[in-house]
Design a protein around this nucleic acid. Structure first.
Lengths: 205, 205
DNA sequence: TTACAAAAATGAACAGTGTTCAAAAAAAAT
DNA sequence: ATTTTTTTTGAACACTGTTCATTTTTGTAA
């Protein structure tokens, strides 16, 4: 059994090595500019080997997208040391924006690129587990806020989706270069100015 | 002079023909799946001709992105028959979402794809005129609201950006398939449920 | 150690992409 | 009718993701 075990471990290790190399190149030169040949070169294996361990490029992208959600999930989990749900919700947005800006390529992969979703569609399961889980943490926090008497007249899901959209939209516009060139009075702080406008609003609700 | 004039007109016509063919194919089979050869075939010209009239693929995408903004701009202009700025702002979001959902590929091109912005970067002008103009209509409406006593304690630009982000975020998540697979209680209406949550909020401000 | 079988890694080859540019065809000017 | 200018062409180039027969490496048993 020990040989088969080791082989299984080695397979996992090489899979991880490929993903590590891919992530490195993605961060260095962008996802679109990274080719399978680049990845193979980076880890000193041949192109063919990459295709032994991954079905296609979307497979790699989907795996990396999942890794991104683990990272974001960890950031979110830390927030649950905060008891007050309103305070947690406020911080959650900050953490989300910070994550998006500091990991633009990964964020793009997680929430913008079609590839991971296309891989999902062509696979057996139809559910976006990473999305469900992470959005669940937002919903949970919003629900606690409502239970404490905030957000009267709103229901959990609509409000959570609205908040997600709001923060995602800001990150999206920034990452996809739509905030540049629009001539904001203070372009460097517009993201946090926008977020502060949102904070002012939910505090009144 | 008349020969040169006719030639100039013919050049414009062929340019428009290429864009028309490109747009048709984009809507039919998606932007990523459309090649320059496809476009050339569609209008019965050779690949080379396309490159006489457009610098590269980004050039075509940027031109089509501008056309999209003309369409959206027209939709927005119609809203200015509404006197009450609050009512106009409410309808503006609806029109925006409707446009995004009914013209997904065009919306993607206008607000999501990197291509049009990359073309802008490599051109002489650094300003995103289409974005400035369209966002200007939002800012103008928000400003009128503020002048009428709404949104106390908020400044035009931050709030306008927040609203844009909110609506854009919803459209974005929908178009890039992030609302599917997240197991919403009512997936078909989540976009408008989210928008209604936003309406409830701004009415109170 | 050697012989064989199973597993893993390879890279040339394929069909496709955006892009270029010398040559050909068409139009205009003489 | 001839020359010049403009417009159009499509083969060719360097690149992409992907495949798969072949080679290399590894594990097992005599």
């Amino acid at each position: 059994m020990s040989v088969a075990d080791r082989k299984a471990r080695e397979k996992e290790a090489l899979k991880a090595l490929i993903l590590k190399g891919a992530k490195k190149l993605f961060l260095e030169k962008g996802i679109e500019q990274t080719t399978i040949r680049n990845i193979a070169d980076e880890i000193d294996y041949s192109v063919g080997t990459v295709y032994v361990y991954f079905k296609d490029k979307n497979d790699i992208l989907h795996n990396l997208h999942s890794i991104g959600f683990q990272d974001l999930g960890n950031c979110f989990q830390e927030l649950f040391t905060i008891e007050d749900p309103m305070e947690r919700l406020r911080k959650m947005g900050i953490v989300y924006i910070k994550f998006a800006i500091e990991n633009q390529e990964m964020y793009d992969l997680m929430f913008n690129l079609k590839a991971p979703m296309e891989f999902l569609e062509k696979s057996d399961s139809d559910f976006w587990d990473e999305g469900i889980e992470t959005f669940g943490l937002v919903k949970k926090t919003v629900e606690e806020c409502i239970n404490k008497g905030h957000f009267e007249g709103h229901d959990v899901e609509s409000l959570s989706f609205m908040i997600w959209s709001l923060v995602h939209g800001m990150c999206c516009l920034e990452i996809r270069q739509r905030t540049k060139g629009v001539k904001f009075a203070s372009p460097d702080t517009i993201l946090f100015d926008g977020y502060n406008a949102y904070l002012k609003i939910i505090d009144k609700l």
